[in-house]
Protein backbone atom coordinates (compact mmCIF):
# COMPACT_ATOMS: atom_id res chain seq x y z
CA UNK A 1 0.00 0.00 0.00
CA UNK A 2 1.46 3.34 -0.94
CA UNK A 3 0.74 6.83 0.29
CA UNK A 4 -1.94 7.31 -2.33
CA UNK A 5 -3.95 4.33 -1.24
CA UNK A 6 -3.73 5.40 2.39
CA UNK A 7 -4.86 8.85 1.33
CA UNK A 8 -7.69 7.17 -0.60
CA UNK A 9 -8.78 5.35 2.54
CA UNK A 10 -9.19 8.62 4.36
CA UNK A 11 -10.96 10.29 1.48
CA UNK A 12 -14.37 9.29 2.83
CA UNK A 13 -13.66 11.17 6.06
CA UNK A 14 -12.72 14.24 4.03
CA UNK A 15 -15.89 13.98 1.97
CA UNK A 16 -17.98 13.71 5.13
CA UNK A 17 -16.86 17.23 6.06
CA UNK A 18 -18.43 18.83 2.97
CA UNK A 19 -21.36 21.13 3.55
CA UNK A 20 -24.17 20.27 1.16
CA UNK A 21 -27.93 19.75 1.46
CA UNK A 22 -27.40 16.00 1.96
CA UNK A 23 -24.54 16.47 4.46
CA UNK A 24 -26.71 18.78 6.56
CA UNK A 25 -29.47 16.20 6.97
CA UNK A 26 -29.75 14.54 10.36
CA UNK A 27 -27.61 11.38 10.70
CA UNK A 28 -30.53 9.33 12.05
CA UNK A 29 -32.67 10.25 9.02
CA UNK A 30 -29.87 9.36 6.61
CA UNK A 31 -29.21 6.10 8.43
CA UNK A 32 -32.88 5.09 8.36
CA UNK A 33 -33.16 6.09 4.68
CA UNK A 34 -30.13 3.95 3.86
CA UNK A 35 -31.50 1.00 5.86
CA UNK A 36 -34.85 1.33 4.06
CA UNK A 37 -33.02 1.38 0.74
CA UNK A 38 -31.02 -1.73 1.64
CA UNK A 39 -34.16 -3.47 2.80
CA UNK A 40 -36.00 -2.72 -0.43
CA UNK A 41 -33.06 -3.75 -2.63
CA UNK A 42 -32.57 -7.13 -0.97
CA UNK A 43 -36.32 -7.81 -0.89
CA UNK A 44 -36.48 -8.30 -4.64
CA UNK A 45 -36.43 -11.83 -5.95
CA UNK A 46 -33.36 -13.35 -7.60
CA UNK A 47 -34.80 -13.05 -11.10
CA UNK A 48 -36.26 -9.54 -10.68
CA UNK A 49 -33.75 -7.31 -12.36
CA UNK A 50 -36.07 -4.87 -14.16
CA UNK A 51 -37.89 -3.61 -11.04
CA UNK A 52 -34.50 -3.06 -9.35
CA UNK A 53 -33.33 -0.59 -11.97
CA UNK A 54 -35.27 2.52 -10.76
CA UNK A 55 -33.48 2.20 -7.41
CA UNK A 56 -30.26 3.28 -9.14
CA UNK A 57 -31.89 6.71 -9.00
CA UNK A 58 -31.19 6.96 -5.24
CA UNK A 59 -27.36 6.68 -5.27
CA UNK A 60 -27.15 8.80 -8.41
CA UNK A 61 -29.20 11.63 -6.89
CA UNK A 62 -27.39 11.51 -3.53
CA UNK A 63 -24.00 11.38 -5.25
CA UNK A 64 -24.83 14.41 -7.28
CA UNK A 65 -26.60 16.43 -4.55
CA UNK A 66 -23.82 15.72 -2.05
CA UNK A 67 -21.16 16.68 -4.60
CA UNK A 68 -19.35 13.39 -4.02
CA UNK A 69 -16.90 12.61 -6.82
CA UNK A 70 -17.95 9.34 -8.44
CA UNK A 71 -14.51 7.90 -9.17
CA UNK A 72 -13.17 7.52 -5.58
CA UNK A 73 -16.51 6.10 -4.49
CA UNK A 74 -16.63 3.59 -7.32
CA UNK A 75 -13.06 2.56 -6.52
CA UNK A 76 -14.22 1.58 -3.06
CA UNK A 77 -17.19 -0.26 -4.51
CA UNK A 78 -14.66 -2.24 -6.55
CA UNK A 79 -12.90 -3.30 -3.32
CA UNK A 80 -16.00 -5.35 -2.60
CA UNK A 81 -16.07 -6.78 -6.14
CA UNK A 82 -13.85 -9.84 -5.51
CA UNK A 83 -16.16 -10.96 -2.73
CA UNK A 84 -19.26 -10.51 -4.89
CA UNK A 85 -17.64 -12.30 -7.82
CA UNK A 86 -16.44 -15.07 -5.51
CA UNK A 87 -19.94 -15.66 -4.21
CA UNK A 88 -21.81 -15.20 -7.49
CA UNK A 89 -19.51 -16.78 -10.03
CA UNK A 90 -20.76 -20.28 -9.24
CA UNK A 91 -24.36 -19.38 -10.05
CA UNK A 92 -24.02 -19.75 -13.86
CA UNK A 93 -22.39 -23.15 -13.27
CA UNK A 94 -24.76 -24.51 -10.66
CA UNK A 95 -28.07 -23.10 -11.78
CA UNK A 96 -29.37 -24.52 -15.02
CA UNK A 97 -32.49 -23.78 -17.00
CA UNK A 98 -33.73 -20.73 -18.79
CA UNK A 99 -36.19 -17.93 -18.11
CA UNK A 100 -37.95 -15.71 -20.60
CA UNK A 101 -37.32 -12.00 -20.13
CA UNK A 102 -39.19 -9.80 -22.57
CA UNK A 103 -39.33 -12.64 -25.07
CA UNK A 104 -35.62 -13.38 -24.69
CA UNK A 105 -34.47 -16.71 -23.27
CA UNK A 106 -31.79 -16.12 -20.62
CA UNK A 107 -29.82 -18.57 -18.51
CA UNK A 108 -31.12 -18.63 -14.91
CA UNK A 109 -27.56 -18.82 -13.56
CA UNK A 110 -26.42 -15.72 -15.39
CA UNK A 111 -29.59 -13.89 -14.43
CA UNK A 112 -29.09 -14.57 -10.71
CA UNK A 113 -25.44 -13.59 -11.04
CA UNK A 114 -26.48 -10.31 -12.64
CA UNK A 115 -29.12 -9.74 -9.99
CA UNK A 116 -26.62 -10.42 -7.19
CA UNK A 117 -24.07 -8.07 -8.76
CA UNK A 118 -26.61 -5.28 -9.18
CA UNK A 119 -27.87 -5.67 -5.61
CA UNK A 120 -24.33 -5.65 -4.26
CA UNK A 121 -23.43 -2.61 -6.30
CA UNK A 122 -26.48 -0.73 -5.00
CA UNK A 123 -26.09 -1.73 -1.35
CA UNK A 124 -22.33 -1.13 -1.16
CA UNK A 125 -22.73 2.24 -2.90
CA UNK A 126 -25.53 3.26 -0.53
CA UNK A 127 -23.48 2.28 2.54
CA UNK A 128 -20.44 4.19 1.27
CA UNK A 129 -22.60 7.21 0.47
CA UNK A 130 -23.93 7.15 4.02
CA UNK A 131 -20.38 7.31 5.41
CA UNK A 132 -19.26 9.89 2.84
CA UNK A 133 -22.17 12.21 3.67
CA UNK A 134 -22.39 11.59 7.40
CA UNK A 135 -19.03 10.43 8.78
CA UNK A 136 -18.50 7.24 10.76
CA UNK A 137 -18.67 9.01 14.14
CA UNK A 138 -22.10 10.43 13.32
CA UNK A 139 -23.30 7.10 11.98
CA UNK A 140 -22.19 5.55 15.28
CA UNK A 141 -24.00 8.26 17.26
CA UNK A 142 -27.13 7.67 15.15
CA UNK A 143 -26.94 3.92 15.82
CA UNK A 144 -26.67 4.60 19.56
CA UNK A 145 -29.63 6.96 19.52
CA UNK A 146 -31.63 4.21 17.79
CA UNK A 147 -30.86 1.94 20.70
CA UNK A 148 -28.19 -0.26 19.10
CA UNK A 149 -26.10 -1.80 21.93
CA UNK A 150 -23.03 0.14 23.01
CA UNK A 151 -20.63 -2.75 22.45
CA UNK A 152 -21.78 -3.26 18.87
CA UNK A 153 -21.38 0.42 18.01
CA UNK A 154 -17.99 0.58 19.68
CA UNK A 155 -16.83 -2.51 17.84
CA UNK A 156 -17.92 -0.98 14.56
CA UNK A 157 -16.18 2.31 15.28
CA UNK A 158 -12.92 0.79 16.49
CA UNK A 159 -12.82 -1.65 13.57
CA UNK A 160 -13.22 1.28 11.20
CA UNK A 161 -10.36 3.09 12.97
CA UNK A 162 -8.25 -0.07 12.94
CA UNK A 163 -8.38 -0.11 9.15
CA UNK A 164 -6.39 3.13 8.97
CA UNK A 165 -3.98 1.96 11.70
CA UNK A 166 -3.43 -1.24 9.71
CA UNK A 167 -3.06 0.77 6.50
CA UNK A 168 -0.35 2.94 8.00
CA UNK A 169 1.60 -0.04 9.29
CA UNK A 170 1.28 -1.86 5.96
CA UNK A 171 2.57 1.26 4.22
CA UNK A 172 5.63 1.48 6.48
CA UNK A 173 6.39 -2.22 6.24
CA UNK A 174 6.12 -2.30 2.47
CA UNK A 175 8.30 0.78 2.18
CA UNK A 176 10.98 -0.80 4.37
CA UNK A 177 10.77 -4.04 2.34
CA UNK A 178 10.93 -2.27 -1.03
CA UNK A 179 13.99 -0.27 0.02
CA UNK A 180 15.87 -3.47 0.82
CA UNK A 181 14.59 -5.46 -2.14
CA UNK A 182 15.27 -3.32 -5.21
CA UNK A 183 14.10 -4.82 -8.48
CA UNK A 184 11.57 -7.10 -6.83
CA UNK A 185 7.94 -6.86 -7.79
CA UNK A 186 5.80 -7.22 -4.70
CA UNK A 187 6.75 -9.22 -1.63
CA UNK A 188 8.35 -12.63 -2.02
CA UNK A 189 6.17 -15.50 -0.86
CA UNK A 190 8.81 -16.58 1.66
CA UNK A 191 8.44 -13.27 3.48
CA UNK A 192 4.64 -13.27 3.64
CA UNK A 193 4.33 -15.16 6.92
CA UNK A 194 6.78 -13.12 8.93
CA UNK A 195 5.47 -9.89 7.42
CA UNK A 196 1.86 -10.62 8.33
CA UNK A 197 2.95 -11.66 11.83
CA UNK A 198 4.93 -8.46 12.26
CA UNK A 199 2.01 -6.42 10.98
CA UNK A 200 -0.35 -8.03 13.44
CA UNK A 201 1.98 -7.41 16.38
CA UNK A 202 2.66 -3.83 15.36
CA UNK A 203 -0.96 -2.94 14.76
CA UNK A 204 -2.00 -4.51 18.05
CA UNK A 205 0.71 -2.45 19.74
CA UNK A 206 -0.41 0.72 17.99
CA UNK A 207 -4.08 0.05 18.68
CA UNK A 208 -3.21 -0.41 22.34
CA UNK A 209 -1.46 2.97 22.43
CA UNK A 210 -4.47 4.63 20.79
CA UNK A 211 -6.72 2.91 23.34
CA UNK A 212 -4.49 4.17 26.14
CA UNK A 213 -4.78 7.70 24.75
CA UNK A 214 -8.57 7.30 24.78
CA UNK A 215 -8.58 6.02 28.37
CA UNK A 216 -6.35 8.87 29.49
CA UNK A 217 -9.04 11.25 28.25
CA UNK A 218 -11.80 9.65 30.23
CA UNK A 219 -12.99 6.98 27.79
CA UNK A 220 -14.85 4.32 29.73
CA UNK A 221 -16.47 2.22 27.04
CA UNK A 222 -19.16 4.66 25.96
CA UNK A 223 -18.58 6.67 22.82
CA UNK A 224 -19.92 10.21 23.02
CA UNK A 225 -20.54 11.71 19.61
CA UNK A 226 -21.05 15.35 18.85
CA UNK A 227 -24.13 17.50 19.28
CA UNK A 228 -27.41 15.70 19.02
CA UNK A 229 -29.17 18.25 16.83
CA UNK A 230 -32.93 17.87 16.51
CA UNK A 231 -34.54 16.39 13.45
CA UNK A 232 -35.92 19.28 11.40
CA UNK A 233 -38.93 19.37 9.08
CA UNK A 234 -36.53 19.33 6.10
CA UNK A 235 -34.86 16.19 7.50
CA UNK A 236 -38.25 14.53 7.84
CA UNK A 237 -39.28 15.59 4.33
CA UNK A 238 -35.99 14.19 2.97
CA UNK A 239 -36.50 10.84 4.66
CA UNK A 240 -40.18 10.57 3.82
CA UNK A 241 -39.66 11.48 0.14
CA UNK A 242 -37.11 8.72 -0.26
CA UNK A 243 -39.31 6.35 1.72
CA UNK A 244 -42.19 7.05 -0.62
CA UNK A 245 -40.00 6.52 -3.66
CA UNK A 246 -38.66 3.21 -2.30
CA UNK A 247 -42.23 2.06 -1.55
CA UNK A 248 -43.40 2.90 -5.07
CA UNK A 249 -40.36 1.21 -6.58
CA UNK A 250 -41.07 -1.88 -4.48
CA UNK A 251 -44.80 -2.12 -5.17
CA UNK A 252 -44.85 -1.17 -8.84
CA UNK A 253 -42.64 -2.44 -11.61
CA UNK A 254 -41.76 1.06 -12.84
CA UNK A 255 -39.84 0.03 -15.99
CA UNK A 256 -42.71 -2.29 -17.01
CA UNK A 257 -45.26 0.47 -16.35
CA UNK A 258 -43.24 2.98 -18.32
CA UNK A 259 -42.85 0.47 -21.12
CA UNK A 260 -46.57 -0.20 -21.20
CA UNK A 261 -47.31 3.52 -21.15
CA UNK A 262 -44.87 4.23 -23.96
CA UNK A 263 -46.03 1.34 -26.09
CA UNK A 264 -49.66 2.20 -25.33
CA UNK A 265 -48.99 5.75 -26.44
CA UNK A 266 -47.45 4.56 -29.67
CA UNK A 267 -50.20 2.07 -30.39
Amino acid sequence: MNNTSLHDMRRLEDLARLDTFVHRRHPVVKLLTTLAFLGVVVSFGRYEIGPLLPLVFYPVVVLSAAEIPAVPLLKRVLWAAPLILGVGVLNPLLEHGQVLVGGLALSRGWLTFLSLSLKSLLTVTAALLLIATTGMENVAAALRSLGVPRLFVLQLLLTYRYISVLGEEVERTLKAYALRAPGQHGVQRAAWGSMVGQLLLRTVDRAERVYQAMCLRGFAGEYHGGAGARISATDLAYGLSWGLFFAIARVYDIPALLGALTLGGWM
Binding site: E13, R17, E137, E168, R206, V210, Q212, A213
Partner: peptide, 8 residues
Protein backbone atom coordinates in the same frame (compact mmCIF):
# COMPACT_ATOMS: atom_id res chain seq x y z
CA UNK B 1 -0.58 10.03 15.82
CA UNK B 2 -1.46 7.82 18.78
CA UNK B 3 -3.16 10.72 20.51
CA UNK B 4 -5.15 12.06 17.57
CA UNK B 5 -7.71 9.53 16.42
CA UNK B 6 -10.85 11.52 15.66
CA UNK B 7 -11.88 12.85 12.22
CA UNK B 8 -11.24 16.51 13.04
Amino acid sequence: DDQLFMPT
